[in-house]
Design a protein around this nucleic acid. Structure first.
Lengths: 341, 341
DNA sequence: GTCACTGCTTGAAACCTTTCAATCACCAGG
DNA sequence: CCTGGTGATTGAAAGGTTTCAAGCAGTGAC
């Protein structure tokens, strides 16, 4: 029944159903134009031959696809998958397909994905870039590809960005710790390259200054990534400090670090929050379920994704009267046991 | 400099560089065949015109792409993103691009993705299907698309599967609890549709039978999904049972449920593991960092992904002398505080 | 001066679908 | 019987790339 020797095309279907190419195409794209019994015949032929429409050819002719892609920093970080879910919700409403691409924090992989996706002529691109000033983004914009930057902002206003005020988030975290009486506070995060890290830390320093303290009071512990494993390692380092000068509180650049730190702190016998208070960032679902429920700076993850997708779809649809926007959401501190024992 | 009026094609580049179409294509695909200065000229022209290769046309001609896709059940479940990471590692070694697709446990979305990807003529497809007996998978196989099923098996041996012995995993969990003296044990999981749920529960029942107990001793609490939120709800229900008949232990079909359950149990004042012992499944990174570190059944997540990707690439490459395999890994119980206080 | 060879470049064909103007068959109205 | 109109179908052209047989120029051997 099924012809396995060579791929089945519209031509074969047309021959089998005794109609012309054009009719087969009409069955596919404008079924109402085809009489019921012809349509029936064509559909049967398709089924019997196992016809599968060739998307490349279709797209080549049509000039565009019904596909979006989200290039994210770290697919194993629940923060980004929650953002992705928001994107998917909106995309589904518009009958668009979303591909998720994991750059894994590596600029060269991000670049490879972006190039590939542009070549694929996707309708639009959502990116949480390693570096929002990357020239590739400018290239995409120049080539007319709709792009929205998610969870970062960008110096130039040549595209939409949707983000959360990271500096404010950092400030909230530190103010909270200062309010609780902490004086020696650590900031845990890295690599430097990540804007999320820089801005949250900048917010932390700003908060210190506002409270008449020196920004250098912040003990910075640099990590190589924002992962649980790096959080564990940071815990070792923190525990290794002489107790007298050891920070009494740590602000982590994200919850994965905080959860790793927490786990190691507990396993090394440090009491949380008494000996070490911990603040995370993102308020992922696992934060509340942690060994000691984690105080964290909450970001509207789903909403971030939804908003970004809506802006992208607007740009892709109303290309002309689309105005680029810079949406900034406000983070919110959620206090839990890891700071307020 | 950049021509925004109409898309730039090889033709335009050829004209700008004063060479023929074929030469431009050679620069793109077999640069060694082109003399250095011609190549230079062509590359300059490409840069100046902002030429971006049209992947649709390329693929149409070439007949295949350098793309794999992984259609997963739940992108927000760290288990699957870890599997995805294993896949990405192998794919990268072979210079293949991976798209992640989130079916979100919905058969219709899974179907839409699979159809779309087949139309796109991807090199191969990795799927963790809602239902591994879905006819769509058989269609794909019949059409000659390389497919590997991940984390499930399938009745027929028409494709490769890579999975972990879920029944054994269920058995390990229950044996552990029985060894600790628990007699009233709950199984928390659902929906019924998911093989993971059915098999882990079957393993649980088998363990009871092997220990001369009735499989009906297992108190089944059905959930609508394997999520933290459903775990929280299950916690409510469990806590609502009269204390005398309430299970003293719960085996959850995955860690997300277990973490939700744990969180609610703690917040409702049940002591874990004294009043309620909890076993999860997957041993995701967050399990060890939980409020009470979670006993869990560990699966080799990265390896699962790596193996699946290798089988897929083998099938795509050596189409003819590829033999379908059914790889089954062995799970392992990791005992932590949530059972052995 | 011819031949065989090498290294580059060329131009047309092919990939498969969609689109659109043209055609056809048929019917109702005059 | 002709005209105009309607709805269904047709066939050719177009879309951008890759491939491949063929062409061309230059070189070394005879």
């Amino acid at each position: 029944m099924v012809n396995r020797s060579r791929p089945v095309g519209v031509k074969d279907v047309a021959a089998a159903a005794n109609v012309s190419l054009g009719t087969v195409s009409n069955v596919l794209n404008r079924p109402h134009r085809v009489s019921a019994d012809t349509r029936e015949r064509v559909e049967t032929a398709m089924r019997e031959l196992g016809f599968v429409r060739n998307e490349s050819a279709r797209q080549l002719r049509a000039g565009q696809s019904r596909t979006l892609a989200y290039v994210m920093l770290d697919a194993t970080n629940p923060f980004f998958t929650d953002v992705a879910q928001g994107i998917e919700e909106v995309a589904e409403d518009h009958d668009l397909t979303v591909f998720l691409c994991n750059s894994d924090n590596r600029p060269e992989r991000e670049l490879a994905y972006l190039q590939r996706l542009e070549q694929q002529r996707v309708q639009g691109l959502l990116v949480t870039p390693v570096d929002p000033e990357s020239p590739m983004l400018a290239d995409l914009v120049r080539h007319g590809v709709p792009v929205v930057v998610v969870d970062r902002t960008r110096d130039t206003e040549d595209l939409c960005t949707v983000s959360v005020d990271d500096e404010l988030g950092g400030r909230l975290a530190i103010e909270h710790l200062l309010d609780l009486g902490h004086r020696r506070i650590a900031f845990i995060g890295g690599p430097e390259q990540l804007g999320q890290v820089r801005e949250r830390r900048a917010g932390a320093r700003a908060a210190l200054v506002e409270r008449d303290r020196s920004p250098d009071d912040l003990v910075v512990i640099a990590t190589n990534a924002l992962t649980v494993a790096e959080g564990l390692a940071a815990g070792e380092r923190l525990a290794g400090l002489p107790k007298r000068s050891r920070p009494t509180a740590a602000f982590c650049a994200n919850d994965l670090l905080a959860l790793g730190l927490l786990q190691r702190a507990v396993s090394l016998g440090m009491r949380v929050p008494d000996e070490l208070a911990i603040v995370g960032y993102d308020d992922i679902d696992f934060a509340a379920a942690a060994a000691v429920p984690l105080t964290s700076v909450r970001q509207p993850r789903r909403l971030l994704g939804r908003t970004a997708a809506e802006l992208l779809i607007d740009e892709a649809g109303n290309g002309d009267d689309h105005r680029h926007q810079r949406v900034v959401f406000t983070p919110e501190l959620v206090a839990r046991t890891s700071t307020c024992g």
